[in-house]
Design a protein around this nucleic acid. Structure first.
Lengths: 147, 147
DNA sequence: GCGATTAACGTGTATATGCACATTATCTGC
DNA sequence: GCAGATAATGTGCATATACACGTTAATCGC
């Protein structure tokens, strides 16, 4: 039997949603591959960098700046805490938790950022500056679809 | 304390990857909301419709046409099989499995498609035909990033 | 036709995502 | 200052995603 790609050739999907989802997977894969040596996924690096900028932050606060669901953020913190890159401790307000980077976390974020810049540059080269700007504008508009 | 959105106002992310990921979540959420009455997510509806077009298909074949990882497809079939919308049975080749729609699956897909058309139309209206075409082209190029 | 290769699939593990519901603590109006 | 509203978090459940590894069966080279 021939290779499966020759039997099922790629063709554009009529569904705009699937197109965005597939692009998201592809771009995520691309960034994750570039970031691989850092041991971080692009989602994790983003979390660390956002934390660095917002530190010390609450879980809800981090969720808000990253625009990720609060409960998702809650769980996404776990592997990073387990890896010793951040700490989650009781906040001043007894309802809140304080999330803070560790030294290891700061270091990992710095190393990741170097690789991230490579990925950014590669994507810019790939799309061209103009198309990248158009894409960014369109994505922003799409994001506004969500309430 | 003020509402959290006033403390952490939205601002564009410098990371192209995150922008795509967020847009993906937003558009998925939008489609899923429209599809809600059908009881299907956009990913599930897509699976059913692709299956309808490719029936009878193997798991790998379905994965290829939908451009989803084979093992992901394997697991995504489970809830739909549990809901009685499709069946997974041994294929002619003893290595393969045959995936087929049930009558309930065909019906669910048809109902879902009506709602899906609404979502498609709404998005087209929201972005405008021209921008939608631009977006589609850009997303296709992004998807080509993945090997 | 036999051994090596390849194809198709399943599963363990891990991350990511978000809804519904519950808990606890602060705050607000009176 | 107490009752009700609100805020911040945690958890159960379900889906989606994919890598690494293992299994089984067909295929290919000779």
């Amino acid at each position: 039997m021939k290779h499966i790609d020759t039997v099922y050739p790629k063709k554009p999907s009529p569904c705009n949603c699937l197109n965005v989802r597939r692009a998201s997977r592809a771009v995520t894969d691309f960034y994750d591959t570039v970031l691989k040596p850092s041991g971080l996924t692009v989602a994790q690096l983003s979390l660390l960098l956002n934390l660095k900028a917002a530190e010390p932050a609450t879980i809800g606060g981090l969720a808000a700046v990253t625009r990720i669901d609060r409960t998702t953020m809650n769980r996404n913190l776990k592997p990073l805490a387990d890896a010793g890159l951040l700490t989650v401790s009781p906040g001043g307000d007894s309802r809140t938790r304080q999330v803070a980077l560790t030294d290891a976390g700061r270091e990992a974020a710095a190393k990741g950022k170097v690789l991230w810049r490579e990925a950014q540059a590669a994507l810019k080269e790939y799309l061209g500056e103009e198309d990248l700007a158009r894409l960014t504008a369109l994505l922003a508009k799409l994001e506004a679809l969500a309430p």
